[in-house]
Design a protein around this nucleic acid. Structure first.
Length: 403
RNA sequence: GCUCCCUUCGUCUAGUGGUUAGGACGCCGGCCUCUCACGUCGGUAACAGGGGUUCGAGUCCCCUAGGGAGCGCCA
């Protein structure tokens, strides 16, 4: 059996650091097992989806080096297929039309909450005999009434959920468009996904999806629910914790390999090893030894790792990653004669590429001014004479520069 | 509220019944050094709490507490 994993972002913003980690795990799993990695864009929410986001995600993945073997597929291009499966379910009596109004549903949920119950649809339209003419119906999936759903999760272990905790979820809206939990199932089925690796905010969706898969007569894939990444305050990582966009890290002068390394080590470890080459990641990473609990994102450690990568980096590779940063500073690094020497002096004292660029600038361009405060503090007394003298001395050592 | 999941230094983690509970980041200090660094040596700091099981529990079981997630015609 060929392993097929997938990464299904919705293009509603930047590529989030948490999504990137899940993508990395999926990619690693596929690469490790000689399988395929599928990219699928979940763009059914037309309101919030955008072309720019798609591009941003694509850029992020390529920057991280996460190449995919199939896709990108777009859900909006698969609408006919979803409709087909909905009809199939309807015909088989495994789904039904529901004419409940939002008001009616709200009221029902309110009563359930008041009773201390979990709000869920009570299936009142399952046997509706005379459909009202003026209400466009949604389609609901007939969830089994009893029994359990068991997930043998690759990271969480066995999870058992009782079917009476689940309700008849909507698989098609009143305008006919399919909903998330349904499209995921159809896509994973059609794309023959064997391993679903995703955030553990999806564990509660999993039993529903398994039930639909079973109704469709398909064997569910294996699941691996990886924990969320939290901010310093223990809350789910979000913008208020600082940078959460992958591309922001690129802009801030991080090396992709450092980010990838950090992300993989977050919630996973291999003995005392901290630094891994790409190949080691593929060989050593094991999804089933990912930590079960969530992990707090630690920017300091990422910074340290980045520093390690810069210190140990080959100058030409560093130059490739720093090229556009230099361009931003108005320097064409490829035209600089002594750039290698400059890199070698600075790479051991720069924690980011931005710092490296900053420290290198005065080697590459004329000084256009002095810091007033420092001038007042140091340029006094004999300082001028000494500097002139020093300059004279430097003329002689110039030919030995770097030796 | 209900359901599911989780719980070792501040943070990321090792640990699979017997360890002085190990490593890493951070922080503090020593050494190296004509500067800044690199490097290097050392220190700081944890098994959430309570019951069991066992000769012996961070490791197994139960309870409590705390945290996270989900409960949409969002994904």
């Amino acid at each position: 059996m060929t392993v097929i994993t997938r990464f299904p972002p919705s293009p509603t913003g930047y590529l989030h650091i948490g999504s990137a980690r899940t993508a990395l795990f999926s990619w690693l799993y596929a690469r490790k097992h000689g399988g395929r990695f599928v990219l699928r864009i979940e763009d059914t929410d037309r309101e919030r989806s955008s072309e720019e986001s798609v591009q941003e995600i694509l850029d992020g993945m390529s920057w991280l080096g996460l190449d995919y073997d199939e896709g990108p597929y777009f859900q909006t291009q698969r609408m006919n297929r979803y409709q087909e499966v909905i009809d199939q379910l309807l015909d088989a009596g495994k789904a039904y039309h529901c004419y409940c109004t939002r008001e009616e549903l709200d009221e029902m949920r309110e009563q359930q909450r008041a009773r201390g119950d979990k709000p869920r649809y009570d299936g009142r339209c399952r046997h509706r005999s005379q459909p009202p003419q003026d209400i466009p119906p949604v389609v609901r999936f007939k969830n089994p009434l009893d029994g359990n759903v068991v997930i043998d999760d690759l990271v969480k272990g066995r999870i058992t959920i009782s079917n009476n905790e689940l309700d008849d979820l909507i698989i098609a809206r009143s305008d006919g468009t399919p909903t998330y939990n349904f499209t995921v199932v159809v896509d994973d089925m059609d794309m023959q996904i064997t391993h679903v690796i995703r955030g553990d905010d999806h564990v509660n969706n999993t039993p529903r999806q398994i039930n639909i898969l079973k109704a469709l007569g398909v064997e569910p894939p294996r699941y691996a629910h990886v924990p969320m990444i939290l901010g310093e305050d223990g809350k789910r990582l979000s913008k208020r914790h600082g940078a959460v966009s992958v591309m922001q890290y690129r802009d801030d002068g991080y090396l992709p390999q450092a980010l990838v390394n950090y992300l993989m080590r977050l919630g996973w470890s291999h003995g005392d090893q901290e630094i891994f080459t790409r190949q080691e990641m593929i060989d050593l990473f094991d999804i089933s030894s990912v930590q079960r609990g969530s992990a707090v994102f630690n920017p300091e450690k990422l910074l340290w790792l980045n520093y390690e990568y810069i210190k140990a980096g080959k100058v030409d590779e560093l130059r490739d990653h720093a090229r556009w940063h230099f361009e931003n500073a108005g320097i064409n690094i490829d035209e600089q004669a002594n750039w290698e020497e400059v890199f070698r002096v600075n790479q051991q004292r720069s924690k980011t590429l931005l710092e490296l660029v900053d420290r290198s600038l005065f080697f590459f361009r004329e000084i256009d001014g002095y810091d007033a405060k420092s001038v007042n503090k140091h340029f006094k007394g004999q300082a001028g004479e000494i500097l002139v003298e020093l300059r004279g001395q430097l003329e002689h050592v110039r030919s030995d520069w770097g030796k």
